[in-house]
Amino acid sequence: MRAALFLTCVNDTLYPDTGRAVVRLLERLGVEVDFPLAQTCCGQAHYNTGYRHEAEPLARRHARVFRDYDYVVTPSGSCAAMVRDIHPRLGGRARAEGRGDGLARDLTGTGTRTYELTEFLVDVLGVTDVGAYFPHTVTYHPTCHGLRMLGLGDRPRRLLEAVRGLELRELAGAEECCGFGGTFAVKNSDVSAAMGADKVANAVRSGAEVLCAADNSCLMHLGGTIARQGTAIRPVHIAEILASTREEPLRLPATGAPVHMTVGRPGTEARARREGTHR
């Protein structure tokens, strides 16, 4: 099976380890992964901030780049929701504005072929045990767009529960938003920070070593809060946990180290050593 990785601009730039983890995981499961280099951004930040017309060329470009793939996989609930749920609306709004069917036509189809990573694993590949090993306590935060727009349900949990050595801890108030919300985090920074602090407090109370989610933008907000507080819990994207194996385990950084982590893989050794994640 061949699938295109829609990594998202945030992951490409700030969280390459998540991308590498997805590739490693999917290749391990026999999927031929392609990464169309022409991909950039799905337009979510523009759209959600009110710049719908600025988002249109980005959506159009996105649809063009991924047009020829039967499966498009992304390790981001909110970007998957943007493509699946919002892109078709862009076409409808353009039509309502008397701008014809062109945009709607261009944006048709990609959404239905786009899968958030855990959906792809559970629904398309039909696996919940991906052969992962991660001997740590983990609490899972279901991010809003994955939870409500995509309806990921218990897929992420089922995947995590099947990971060898992993002990899942309940997160109080799990379904409450972490407070990221894109530009909300800056425009309403006080409320956003209060929400983030509450989410981190609940995660810490779970007793888990790791706070896991399926969206790095939320983890960037929570990780930033955690780092500033100097809290011990560490944010990790679910892809990196699922990619971790006994042979190539994901190593957690020491408490207080930068939140950025890396999967042990040739080529990242130097950086890992520099940041003290290997012992």
């Binding site: 490409d12 969280y15 390459p16 380890d17 991308g19 590498r20 990464f35 920070a193 809060t225």
Partner: peptide
């Protein structure tokens, strides 16, 4: 408004696409 309460993530040494181009 971001950094009053949150750290920024570190910019990694290598972007994903750079790694991809090298390896894939």
């Amino acid at each position: 408004a971001w950094t009053d309460t949150r750290d920024l993530p570190a910019v990694p040494a290598q972007s994903f696409r750079a790694w991809w181009q090298r390896t894939h």
